[in-house]
Amino acid sequence: MAWRTSILTREILPFALSFAALIGGVLLIDLVLHLAGLVWIGRYLGIVGVAIILGSFSYSLAKRKWIKPFNPVVRLRRHERWAWAGALLILVHAGIHFNALLAWLAVGAMLINVLSGLTGKYLLQRARARMGQTRTDLAAHGSDPAEIEAQMYWDSLTYGIIKQWRSLHVPITLAFAVLALAHIISTALFWGWH
């Protein structure tokens, strides 16, 4: 059954479920805060979320050798978990309030950044490994190279598309950083510190 072994069911579905879990977690936390009358906590979750996301950048800094690397796999997993948790808190902070355009632009850039990060995590590395395994399995079962290519056509096409994720991830990260910084500065100016 080809549908059970396709990249779509093995890779894209888990990717979509991970993003859905993020959104579902946001909705659940927001609901609990509203029901408990603790909506004001959301105002401060943005600060905690930004701090967690900043901590997740140790992977990027180590990858570029700006800080001492120790274990890139450990840093990558930490980057993924911390960025996801920070995004969750920032999205709860944003809530369903549509009164600040700058804040929503920052949230939109963050969501696109999370999507591009999940693309790298769930799709690219697993798709590459599974495609190699599928090629090996087909060859072991006596398929000739032309038949293997024909059977792998859609997987190869899908892989080629998702391979472009890095070209989005870095610029979107920068856009998110600029928009988030502008939001933080404008909030600090108008916070009402008394």
Rank of each mutant, 00 (worst) to 15 (best):
M1Y: 11
M1S: 14
W3Q: 05
W3H: 12
E11G: 03
E11Q: 12
I12A: 13
A16W: 05
S18P: 00
I23S: 05
H34T: 08
A36F: 02
G37Q: 05
G37P: 12
G42V: 10
L45I: 01
G46T: 10
V48F: 09
I53M: 15
G55I: 11
K63G: 02
K63S: 09
R64A: 08
K65S: 05
K65A: 03
W66D: 01
I67P: 07
P69C: 13
N71C: 07
V73W: 05
V73L: 07
V74G: 00
L76M: 11
R78T: 09
H79E: 12
H79D: 14
A83M: 11
A85M: 12
G86L: 11
L89C: 10
V92F: 10
H93R: 15
H93L: 04
H93D: 10
N99K: 07
L101S: 05
L102C: 02
A103L: 13
W104R: 13
A106V: 05
G108T: 10
I112W: 08
S116G: 03
G117N: 00
L118I: 02
G120T: 02
K121R: 14
A127P: 02
A129R: 13
G132Q: 09
Q133G: 01
R135I: 11
A139D: 09
A140E: 08
A140D: 08
G142W: 08
S143M: 14
E147H: 11
E149M: 08
Q151V: 04
M152E: 08
S156L: 10
T158F: 14
I161A: 15
S167E: 07
F176L: 03
F176I: 00
L179N: 06
A180N: 06
L181I: 05
H183N: 12
A188H: 06
F190T: 15
F190N: 12
H194S: 10
H194R: 04
